[in-house]
Design a protein around this nucleic acid. Sequence first.
DNA 1: ATGGCCGGGAAGCCCGGA
Length: 256
Amino acid sequence: MELKIATWNVNSVRARLSVVIRWLEKEKPDVLCMQELKATLEQFPFEEFENLGYHCAVNGQVRWNGVAVVSLSEPAAIETDLNGFLPEQSRMISTGIHGIRLINVYVPNGSEVDDPRFKDKLRYYEVLRNYAEGFDRPTVIVGDFNVAPGPDDTHSPEQQDGTVCYHPLERKQIQLFEKHGFRDVFRKYHPQGKAYSWWDYRAASFRRNRGMRLDLVLADETAMERITDCFIDKEPRKWEKPSDHTPVLFKIEVSE
DNA sequence: ATGGCCGGGAAGCCCGGA
């Protein structure tokens, strides 16, 4: 059977609830990985997801961060500890789904290049790589990586070069994932051309299509062999009260 | 005509996002 799995930074699951539910009813993915819940476990709207048949695995936090995996089949072996790194920030949830290890992350934004949080961001990629290599294959990492991997993944690469989310040290980290066998799945299916998953709320960025591709699917070789497609769904970015991100989806063949 | 936003929690602004 084939699973359809999505990743989406929803920018508050409570503010976005009607948009997310509408999208689930339209797209009917088997799994949705969400980032930036901006909600605690207690605040998470379980009922609305369960009404559509989804199980919810939630790593919540007050005000900021927060990630969740909602899935039609019950997830196994849920983990929220990223090898002890940044324990006070809820940025990772990892589950077993139909024999796949699915890791859902919200990588720190980094604030500014000269901010101490930028160092945490760079370190985050390394710790995540070590964590992801600790599982039996196949393994897929999805989420908001907060970096555009290459010049086709952002609207103005020349002007943005060296700034947060398009800094050479950040891009190098994505190249290191590739060196460790985790490929950028979207670019396998769309090797050429500008493609974005995020558009700033300001400056009419969406209408002018000035965006960045920050939301990635990285798959190891075993997972890549089973993946059949990967694409960005721009539709919900056009709806009322949208998130500034839009969903990225992929399809993967699993035995049962 | 080229850009002026959004969410949460505490408070009537500030922080964070990217």
